[in-house]
Structure formats: structure tokens, C-alpha cells
Design a protein around this nucleic acid. Sequence first.
DNA 1: CAATCCATGTAATCGGTTACATGATTCC
DNA 2: GGAATCATGTAACCGATTACATGGATTG
Lengths: 183, 183
Amino acid sequence: MLKYAILGLLNREPLTGYDISQKFNNTVCNFWYSTHGQIYPALKKLNSEGLISFETGTKGTLLKKKFYQLTDEGREELSQWISTPLDLEPTAKDSFRLQLFFTEIMGIEESLRLVKEQKIKRTAKLSRLQSKMDEKFQENPKFGSQPNESLGDYLVLKGAVMREESYVNWLDECETVLERFLH
Amino acid sequence: MLKYAILGLLNREPLTGYDISQKFNNTVCNFWYSTHGQIYPALKKLNSEGLISFETGTKGTLLKKKFYQLTDEGREELSQWISTPLDLEPTAKDSFRLQLFFTEIMGIEESLRLVKEQKIKRTAKLSRLQSKMDEKFQENPKFGSQPNESLGDYLVLKGAVMREESYVNWLDECETVLERFLH
DNA sequence: CAATCCATGTAATCGGTTACATGATTCC
DNA sequence: GGAATCATGTAACCGATTACATGGATTG
């Protein structure tokens, strides 16, 4: 799957392995991530399979950079995959939910403390996402008459915001239910 | 982390490895899962570490079963972990979001088709979750005056329902945005 | 001139999945 | 009697993380 994440990014513009790992920490991090220890070997493999190629650039006088781009076969393979319906993946693991599932082990006060702690972190994450949204798309996003890259950017960012909102709402519900036990 | 999932389940009642793998496919699947190929070795290790022990039972006349239970050290280690605040994990990977991020590669009609496809699957999952909720907790869940296991069951199931609702809402938003391009 | 970032790679390890392997029990 | 399920294990493999390793460029 990492394969398609990389191909998709390269379809937008030529990138170095370093660029790709940066994207996995920023834009793309709301639905995918990876580290350079996996990215460089993957690029090597994709290159040997003929799906991507690279041109060497330099920064300063000595530092070598490899700019990767899609080959025709790479572009073809990407289009194939992109419109293939995928089965739902098993629900992602979530250690906080795991802890709360076993809430009977703690006291109510302790469970509440955990929930409030988690809410602080989640709320912070949500407002980071909302800022990014405001920054990139203001109130009403405008795309041209033709779909372009910023449409995909918008849809997944919107999805990330909604996901975090929902998580925070759930934490509110947990708080309410737990507090009922205190009175 | 699998370690604590297993300890938590065993804190509720003695279970066999097979029982545990069943739970990971049913109740617990909304926030954790694993397969027997990982569970049996993990039980062996937890046993060798003195966190769990087992008693051998039989089914019929020949079939041996191992019922695992927590030791005092196991119970202690579990309580330690259960109330330890955890940092937010990186956002889980989601191949559907990955596809939609690269929506510019497809045509609008094709993107819409994918979104609708996904919505059917997600809606089906949501109604399975809602049925389970109705079945176990009817309209207004009642817990005793003391928190018990069914409180944890309720909270995570509620969380799963809210998560899927949010996913479906997001897919609606995607549909709306994409349809605007058709007119 | 030191710290931080840019840039690329490999190796060891780990967590997890899939396949291999075996055999009893239950239900139709 | 055969199929599905119960039940337990191991081995090969794969995806991913962390650590190891190196060195240039930029900025204060």
C-alpha cells in the first residue's frame, strides 16, 4: 500500500525520498505515514520495477539529491489501483479505547481523569486541524471548474476534522456517563 | 500492547487462547484484534513471565483446553498500565482516504462511484453496530450503582457507533462536493 | 563554529499475518 | 460419514520501526 502512497505523491510532482518523508509528517499524515527507513528501500524497489525513475540534482556544490518521477508504467499502475474499490479494513487499534474498555479496573475518578486528559490532547489536535483548514480553504473552499489536487486536499482534511470532532464528542459522552456515577 | 489486551480480558474471566481469538473477532474488534498465530505465543510468554497461569480442562474425553487466568503480578501490572495516560498515536492508515486524496487522477464520475461504494459498506457496518447496541443496551443503558464491565462495553460500543456515523457523514460531504462538479 | 536541518542509505529487530500442521467435537 | 467448528501450536514471511552510519548545507 505504501507503494501507491508514493506513486500518488510522485504523480503530483517529482520528489526526493526526503521530501516524501516530510509529506508523511505533514499534509499526508492524516491518513498515511511512514519513515525514511522504509521509504528509501521502497523507492529503490519501485525504480528496479520500472515504475519510477530519477534524475540527480544537487544542492550547493556537493550534496546529491534524487528526484523521482513516475514512468508511464508507474502512472498506469497507479490509475489501475486508484479506482479499485477496496474492502473495509479491520478497525484500527486504539489503545485509549482499550484502556476505557477495562474501566471497571479503575475507580470512577481515575477513569474520569483519563478521559479528561485524553480530551485535552484530542481537542488540541482538533484545533490544529481546524487552523490548517481555515488557512488553506477559508470558509468556503473554491475549486476551479475542473477537479484538481486541492479537491483531494480538501476532502481528506475535512475528513480529519470530522473524525476528531467525533472523537471529542465521544469523550464528552464518556465524561457524562462517568459523572453520573459520582452523584 | 497485545499484552494488556490479553491481561484485561483475563481479568474478567478465565479464557482459552481460542476464546481470546474469538473475542478479537467479536466484542473487542472495535478497537483491537489479533489472530491465534500471535495469541498462542503471547500466552506462552506471559505465562513464562509469571503474569498468567493456566489450568487444563477437557472437552469431551480427549480434547485438552488451557484456561488462563491472571496471577497477582499480572493483575498488578494490568492496574499499573490501565491508568497510565498514553500519548496520541499517529493517525491510523486508511486506504480509502488515500485513494480519495488522489482523486484528481480519476474522473468525477469515477470518484463518485468509489464514494458511493464505500458509503454502502460503511452504512452496513454502522447498522450492524447499531443493532448490537440496541440488543445489548436498548434505548437507555442501565448500569448498577457501581461501575462494572458493562460500562466499558457500553462506552466502546457507543464510540464505535459514533465513529462510523462520522465516517458516513464525511462520505455524504464528499458526495455533495463531488456532485457540485457535475452541474 | 556549533546546532539544526537537509539528504541518503543499511541493519537489527519487532509486531503481525499467513500458511503449515494436527487432531477432537459437534451437528446435519 | 462429511463438514463446520473447536482447539493448539509452529514456521516462514512481511511490513514497519529504531538504531546505526555518514556527510553536506544553512543559520545564528
